[in-house]
Design a protein around this nucleic acid. Structure first.
Lengths: 167, 167
DNA sequence: TATTGTTATACTCTATAACTATA
DNA sequence: TATAGTTATAGAGTATAACAATA
């Protein structure tokens, strides 16, 4: 690689790894976006939001969705609005705090998401079919280390409860 | 803040892997984009384009850049225009084909990219510092299998090129 | 004052398609 | 006709900041 030749690179392995990681993720992600659009006329953020709600049948507040989807609040409002228009989610009042909403799937949203999730899983399984179960497992663990250190780095001082590692 | 909390399945390993992969990539990518903007007032596509040219000192044609960056031609024109405005790249005529250009780094572009690449590598090394050299290597190989099968699947005949990995 | 959520705005990123100028 | 590149447009995706209502 060029950077190596120029003497700037003491750790070219990490760089190569990152570039390949980015390429792979983009390949799969592009495919998922295309399929979601073609087969369900929806987008990845909308699918993400519904997936969050599927896991939380009692609903989630807007700021909880914002945190989990890693985007700012204004965007969650927009995505939610679209899904409300489509009749897939609804905003429920929260007892004791009239500022907040609890967003949850409608019955139809639950049903529609079920079909999307089934297809989605098929695309993902296909994307990783080159790996054996043992390789998938070891891949998963490697990513766990990266993720952990990333999050530790980001939240210096703020002791975060790792409720994120549910999977 | 976690997108791994998505989806449900009977075959959850590949899905879990994908969600974690997506989360990790987004964490690192977001950091890189932010740093590129804050420290160099630039973007990832602009950085990518310059990285391609750094690796090809004689320059690349627009369609070659398009292929390598995995985006359509119109976008390459826009990114190139910006970099030309900044004096970092230039369009050279191609002998024997007056339709085509050869885009290459200017002297200043080469120098500026050098500094960006140095910093960039630091961010990436930090992102993966939780992994041992052996783990990095095995990670890289696993991704290679995924990438290979993705490309075989996607393109019936004309393989999709690497993004930044093309040497 | 702080928090929840919305609105308004702007910019990046991308794809598509029509267009030009060569080939 | 086919190819190289540009232009125009549209939409996704995101961040920021000002704002209203409530706490």
């Amino acid at each position: 690689m060029d950077m190596e030749e120029r003497g700037h690179s003491e750790h070219p392995e990490a760089l190569r790894l990152w570039l390949r990681l980015l390429t792979c993720t983009q390949l799969v992600e592009k495919q998922v976006r295309t399929q979601l659009r073609e087969q369900f006329d929806t987008t990845l953020p909308r699918f993400d939001l519904m997936a969050q709600l599927e896991r939380n049948p009692d609903g989630l507040k807007m700021n909880e969705l914002s945190r989990r989807m890693m985007v700012t609040g204004g965007n969650v409002t927009g995505v939610t609005d679209q899904l409300v228009t489509e009749g897939l989610v609804e905003r429920m009042q929260v007892d004791g705090d009239r500022r907040a909403y609890r967003v949850r799937l409608t019955a139809r949203g639950h049903q529609v998401f079920g079909e999307m999730a089934r297809q989605h899983e098929g695309w993902i399984v296909a994307a990783f079919e080159a790996l054996s179960p043992r390789e998938v497992e070891s891949f998963y663990k490697l990513l766990g280390k990266v993720k952990q250190s990333q999050q530790d780095t980001k939240s210096i001082g703020a002791g975060l409860p790792d409720k994120l590692e549910t999977a």
